[in-house]
């Protein structure tokens, strides 16, 4: 396959960026999208040009590092991570636009690499259970009904890639935040911090400069792990409940 790539190039956070065009030849349909970029980068490096910087690590769809917007879609046309997208999803002669996640809260580091530390700070604000090492009771002390455990798991699957933010027309981080709130809030272990968790995490999210949620549903469509849109609804319910409880005190 032969492809035309239009890639966002930006030297660093302060520089202006622009799309640059590259032809890539000899692409096999069995390549992953990132392997196709590897081919391009090997060539650029040999030509003494700066290779295209992009985040990637596990290349098996679980670490959440890869983060490309391909033809306007976060992680490209298939519902998976960029590293699990294969070139057979494209046709010979296609022109493909590759851009970084775009959000004020995700400043570009270089080319297609962005700084997603805002997501870490949301977790730091309350996305945990306070259970210092050594303090844990016997694991079977508190049975957790299977449906509850399954529900927690469904939300815990979030890989923190930020595709939800990238896909949201408003650049909101509601789906990310709600996934962690719900994972911990449905479990009995998360109950003691149920209210502070949601209030603190939402406050941090708002403070990071993410947009507001208008429930367009783009986030859930882009999510490679299938976190459902109702996750946001649940978090809203948790937030209202916590706000009510806080005002009762």
């Amino acid at each position: 396959m032969k492809l035309t790539l239009r890639v966002w190039r930006q030297k660093n956070a302060r520089a202006d960026g622009a799309m640059a065009t590259y032809e890539v030849d000899g692409v096999s349909p069995d390549m992953s999208f990132l392997e196709m970029l590897d081919v391009l980068n090997e060539r650029l490096a040999l030509d003494g040009e700066d290779p295209v910087a992009f985040d990637h690590d596990c290349r098996e769809g679980i670490c959440g590092a890869c983060s490309l917007v391909i033809n306007g879609d976060a992680h490209g046309p298939e519902r998976t991570t960029t590293c699990q997208l294969h070139m057979r999803s494209f046709r010979d002669g296609d022109t493909i636009d590759v851009e970084p996640w775009r959000a004020a809260a995700f400043p570009v580091v270089k080319d297609l690499v962005v700084d997603r530390s805002a997501l870490d700070r949301i977790i730091q604000a309350g996305g945990y259970v306070t259970a210092p090492t050594g303090s844990a009771p016997e694991a079977h002390a508190t049975p957790v009904p299977k449906p509850v455990a399954d529900q927690a798991f469904e939300h815990a699957e979030c890989i923190g890639c930020g595709a939800c933010v990238a896909a949201c027309p408003n650049g909101a981080a509601m789906l990310f935040t709600s996934a962690k709130v719900n994972h911990l809030n449905v479990l009995p272990q998360g109950a003691p911090e149920r209210e502070t968790r949601v209030l603190d995490m939402v406050a941090q999210m708002d403070g990071e400069g993410f947009g507001g949620c208008t429930l367009t549903g783009e986030c859930a469509t882009a999510c490679p792990k299938g976190i459902p849109l109702t996750s946001i609804t649940r978090m809203n319910r948790e937030w209202l409940r916590a706000t009510r409880k806080a005002s009762d005190r």
Binding site: E99, N170, G209
Partner: peptide, 17 residues
């Protein structure tokens, strides 16, 4: 807030919602 949250728009725009 939403406009501020995405100061640089995508070059390749896709309408889906």
């Amino acid at each position: 807030r939403d406009i501020r949250a995405r100061p640089t728009p995508y070059v390749h725009r896709r309408r889906r919602a």
